[in-house]
């Protein structure tokens, strides 16, 4: 079973303060850490598990700046066979649609049974690349996948719908799945494996290898801004003793204690 996993290196913003930079089109990055997008780590793990079960080749692809090679190296350490970086510096402004077109140019000549992507990148949050790529390649897809079983040339997958409901469906391979978080328990790369992966080749491809004349952008980012404040919470301040006195007082007043 040959699998391609598309991953993205993103700033880790879930637990950090995020501020807009002076261009208003990007964020201030110097105090942020970067790592593989969360759902992509699950996509990679799912691919490694399938490879362990069925054999075959696992290739990891990422469109990003040169630092992306660190992220790809971790993927190699975890069990990927090949890693390819597409040079983001060659392609200018990106959106989900453009990224998918670039990936399509690379992938259409490669043999594969499954393509995995994460179901959403936490930075631009478009959730477009996977499904768009499947359409461009002319293969079936399933999004927000929380379980995969491969039997012969079919994949039986669970898709996560709203309210805890799952959809069980069948897709014919080759196919693309966008993987939801929680599908598995992503492994950590061991130190020995990381050391070994340091010696592996990461192919870097740019506009001389990937034709981009007909590639278009759908979405143009005009500006980023701090969301308007709605019903803002009353922020309790003071010493911890004062804060907890206030809070427990409020709870008592409302008849909750």
């Amino acid at each position: 079973m040959d699998i391609i996993v598309c991953v993205k290196r993103v700033p880790q913003t879930a637990e950090a303060e995020v501020k807009v930079d002076s261009s208003k089109k990007d964020i201030i990055k110097d105090r942020l850490t970067f790592d593989m997008n969360e759902s992509d780590t699950y996509a990679l793990e799912e691919a490694i598990l399938l490879k362990e079960k069925y054999g075959g080749t696992l290739t990891v692809v990422s469109l990003g700046p040169v630092e992306t090679e660190d992220t790809l190296r971790i993927a190699l350490a975890k069990g990927a066979d090949h890693a390819i970086r597409i040079k983001a510096e060659d392609f200018g402004e990106l959106d989900g649609y453009k990224t998918a077109q670039i990936l399509k140019e690379l992938i259409e000549d490669v043999k594969y049974d499954l393509i995995f992507t994460g179901c959403m990148a936490t930075d631009d949050a478009y959730s477009q690349v996977g499904v768009t790529l499947a359409e461009l390649l002319g293969i079936p897809h399933a999004t927000m996948v929380t379980k995969i079983e491969v039997v012969d040339n079919k994949a039986y997958v669970h898709r996560e719908l709203e309210g805890g409901l799952l959809e069980h469906l069948e897709i014919v391979l080759p196919a693309l799945c966008t993987i939801q978080t929680g599908i598995n328990d992503p492994r950590y790369a061991s130190l020995i494996a990381i050391r070994r992966a340091a010696k592996k080749e990461i192919k870097a491809l740019g506009k001389s290898e990937i034709p981009s004349e007909n590639i278009t952008l759908n979405s143009i980012l005009e500006e980023l801004f701090t969301p308007p404040v709605g019903k803002r919470a009353e922020i309790l301040t003071g010493s911890m003793d004062e804060i907890s006195t206030k809070l427990s007082g409020i709870m008592k007043e409302k008849g909750l204690i």
Binding site: P11, T13, A14, E17, V18, V20, I27, T122, D123, D124, A125, T216, L217, N218, S219, I220, L221, E222, E223, L224, F225, T226, P227, P228
Partner: peptide
């Protein structure tokens, strides 16, 4: 078409126009 959407774990809003 101009849309408002969220980015970066919902911490920022963005105005995006379409081609």
């Amino acid at each position: 078409i101009k849309v408002t959407r969220q980015m970066f774990d919902g911490k920022l809003n963005a105005h995006v126009t379409l081609r």
